[in-house]
Every structure is written in C-alpha cells, then in structure tokens.
Design a protein around this nucleic acid. Structure first.
Lengths: 120, 120
DNA sequence: GTTTTGTTTAGCTAAATTGCAAAATAAATG
DNA sequence: CATTTATTTTGCAATTTAGCTAAACAAAAC
C-alpha cells in the first residue's frame, strides 16, 4: 500500500497542468518515438517515448519538460530507463491502480468509520 | 465527468500534506463538532465539523487551516455551509468517486488506446 | 576524434505557495 | 449594545515552483 507521503507526492505531481498532460498522454499512448527496434513500428506503446518527443508536443523548453518528467518519475508515476543515449519512458500502471483502489476504499468506507486523529 | 482543469485542481489541493490530512480526516470522520443539534451527538459524521475544531488537530494557526479548507472547497472536495456563525463542513464523496472512476478507466484502457495529442 | 543527438544541471527571474500575526467581519450571547 | 465566538481577509516574509538560456555530460555517428 502507498503511504501518505507517497500519495501526497503523486497528487502534487499531477497537480500541474503540464505534468498532468504529460502523464495522460504517456498513459493513453499519445507519444511515439522509435527506441525499441525489436518491437513493431506501429506499436505506439511498445515504442514508448523519449524526452525530446514529449517536449515537441508542448510550447515549453526541453529542460522544463525534462524537469517535469523527473518529478513524475520521483512520484513513481512513470518509469524512465536509459537505453543507449535515449530515455525509454513508460507509465507505471501499478501506482495508478493503487491510487484508484485507495479512492474506492475511501468512498466505500465513508460513513462506516469514525476514528479520531491527531496530526501533529 | 470532471474536465481536466478540475482534476488538476483536485490533485493540487491534495498535493499538500496538511490538506491531505484534513481531507482524509473529514472523509473518515476524524472530527466532531456539535453543530447540527437535531442529529444524535455520537453521530460523528452527521455532526460534521467546524474550522476551529479542525485547526485544533494541527500545529498551524487558524487562518492557515481556514485557507487550506478554502482550497479544498474550491476544488469541490468538501462542502462548507454556514449555519449560524459556524461552518458546517462535509466531504463531497461524489468528486472522489469520479476521480476513482477516472483512474480505473485509465488503467483499464491502458494499452487499448493510441491517440495522438497536441497540448499547445 | 570531432560532431551530432539526447538529456540533465546550473544559474537566473517571476510568480505562487505557505506560514504567521493582526485586523476585519458576522452572528450569538450576556 | 458590548462581548464572545467563529471565521476570513490583509499584509508580510520565507520558501518553492516553473519557466528560461547557457553550459555540461553521455553516447552514437561520422
């Protein structure tokens, strides 16, 4: 299970329009960049993507996108693997699944629980 | 359905430890403050909470908590209703449910879709 | 071994965020 | 109507964020 700090980090990472778009497009296969030559060229997901390709979709400078990607990676939302001189970028569906489950649980348990917390 | 800006706003609101704790405790019934006299005193959820009560659980000044609550309200995560001179604070499970569904859809559709986006 | 390609780091600025205390507002109570 | 209670607004400082350009680094290609 995700601890609280990890969840907060994920939310923070997704709480910015640019990062959210990057995230969304990586997840829905919005980018392609031929890195993995062993995979069919039309397998847009298998081809994953690289930093430059992603940056091309935005009106921001490359280093800006690079830093956003780092933040998504640090939150475990995406995986970045160096392959030769490019970065192979993949979504991390496990984290999103866990987040989804945590919300589902929350809604299901709503009005079922009543504990007192202290947050100091 | 939640549009993107709304989602980003929700994530931003939850991307701060203090706000996340406030959110979590409101959802799980972590606060009590007798506002609604028609409801049984031990119905911690029905009694909901007020700003002062929430602030008592944190080592932050009251105005700070007030501003955090406003941000959660602006993101539609909680509902704040004035009742006499207190604020009746309730969670908004509908939003959380929608968020949860959006993640579920995302994970389910992963590797199913392959559209190209432009984010300019 | 120089150049090109892909990416990150560094150094900067402007704007936003997060905290505070003090003041202001609103309604209930004495 | 003055006081108390609950909350928000204002004004301030410190910190973080998000953007940029230029420089640095790493690997591939010429």
């Amino acid at each position: 299970m995700l601890d609280m700090d990890k969840k907060v980090k994920i939310f923070k990472a997704l709480g910015n329009k640019t990062r959210f778009l990057i995230f969304k497009n990586i997840f829905t296969g919005g980018y392609a960049c031929s890195i993995d030559e062993t995979k069919p060229k039309d397998d847009i997901i298998a081809q994953a993507t690289c930093v430059t390709t992603i940056a091309e979709h935005f009106d921001f400078a490359l280093p800006t996108i690079s830093r956003h990607l780092k933040e998504l990676k640090d939150a475990d939302i995406i995986k970045m693997t160096k392959k030769s001189n490019k970065i192979y970028i993949e979504p991390n569906p496990k984290i999103i699944k866990e987040l989804s489950e945590c919300f589902t649980t929350l809604v299901n348990n709503y009005k079922a629980s009543s504990f007192q917390f202290d947050n100091r």
